[in-house]
Nucleic acid binder design. Structure first.
Lengths: 223, 223
DNA sequence: GCCGGAAAAATGGTATACCAAAGTCGGGTT
DNA sequence: AACCCGACTTTGGTATACCATTTTTCCGGC
């Protein structure tokens, strides 16, 4: 049911297979979900997605599993999955977990001050600044999410980073909910400076206040 | 290459399919790994496992993905996975994360005091007591791990519970490393009592000291 | 005997086709 | 209008085949 109706044995990727199809599919679907192209609650049907993306069911299955793990898709036994509908409670839970983990990661980052990690932080920070200056909300959100991922990575704790990956999808969705990009940027920059200067106390404190700010922004937006 | 050499079209599950095969396979492999039946570093080959467990490659793949997510298997691009070899650093990282999350879960559990959650805690606690009294180390470890999972669930935070599931495999492995079951049981019991009585402060404090104890036990064991 | 590289085997990734069980949905009945 | 039942849909599973890459084996040169 792919696009071929005449090609005999089918000649696929003639070149390098750097990234597995499943990863590519996951990336596409993830982007569509966090960008709102796929409405919360809408169906995610394996066969349909296979046809849409021109791959077989196998990689689609794998991709959907990943999305479930990231909390972006909700499976129901023997039926189609749906795009997750986030509730206020989900946000509260995410905030609670972030409040426990981010100060930890940030403190360790300020202790380590790993050059490569700092560089990565600077890169996403710069992208975020440029994007928010030219009013590109999507790019700014993406960069802000990148910054958060760079942050958990900078803590040097692989496990913490793994959990960060688990939270990544939710974070990107959350970032998509409020649009005070300038405020977010300012706080990220302050956070970066505290880390760069090795001020562990200030870094942890800023991480906590950053969390309060985003929570306040959300409440403001929802009345 | 399965086990059939004569069975014509193959007759599968004739009965209820309550649990997906992939989940069953994952459960089997997980148990084998944490119980040490599969040596750290040993190969996990899809085709071989398919044949061994009498299922096709698909559910085996899914199961292996789960194990990777739980940190019990390590994938290498385009080749077989291996059973994870845990290092001291892995333990330190796990401890760091647990130190951030468990006091949180335990404090919330003491606030909520949900009857069903308390019941579940009591159940695993009782199983742990009985197992350690009769010297059944494997059962005691299993019960101790169950207790920990019940603990994260008792916090009422779904996301926290999800992360708990992610750490579950590592936790079970870690529990398998030290054998002072009686000490672990005593601390779990104290923790339970603090939660049941709603003493949030004591609960959080006990969670932290429990962590210190298990870390000390490990150092003792490794000189 | 040892080393390095070519050939062979192993292995994951993907595609197709089918089947059975469970869930969904719509229409008819009361 | 609520309910029940049957047809359709969809997932989960199995079997088979093929390719590309990696791993292993083995053989000849040094």
């Amino acid at each position: 049911m792919t696009t071929n109706g005449a090609v005999p044995p089918a000649r696929r990727r003639p070149a390098a297979t750097a990234e597995p199809e499943s990863a590519r599919v996951a990336r596409i679907l993830r982007a569509q979900i966090v960008d709102g192209d796929r409405a919360p609650g809408s169906r995610l049907v394996e066969r349909d997605l296979s046809a849409e993306l021109g791959v077989s069911r196998v990689p689609v299955r794998e991709a959907l599993r990943s999305l479930v793990a990231e909390g972006l898709a909700v499976p129901r036994p023997n039926t189609w999955m749906t795009v997750r509908v986030f509730t206020d409670r989900d946000v509260d839970e995410l905030t609670e977990v972030r409040a426990a983990l981010e100060p930890l990661a940030v403190r360790r980052a300020a202790e380590l001050r790993d050059p490569a990690a700092l560089r990565r932080l600077r890169t996403s920070l710069g992208a975020q600044r440029r994007a928010s200056e030219r009013g590109d909300a999507t790019a700014a959100r993406r960069a802000a999410a990148d910054f958060h991922e760079a942050l958990t990575a900078a803590g040097g704790n692989t496990l913490l980073d793994e959990i960060g990956a688990l939270l990544s999808g939710r974070m990107r969705w959350l970032l998509g909910q409020h649009d005070d990009l300038v405020e977010v940027y300012a706080e990220h920059e302050a956070l970066y400076r505290a880390i760069e200067s090795g001020d562990t106390t200030a870094a942890a404190r800023l991480a906590r206040s950053h969390l309060r700010t985003s929570l306040a922004a959300r409440h403001r937006h929802r009345g």
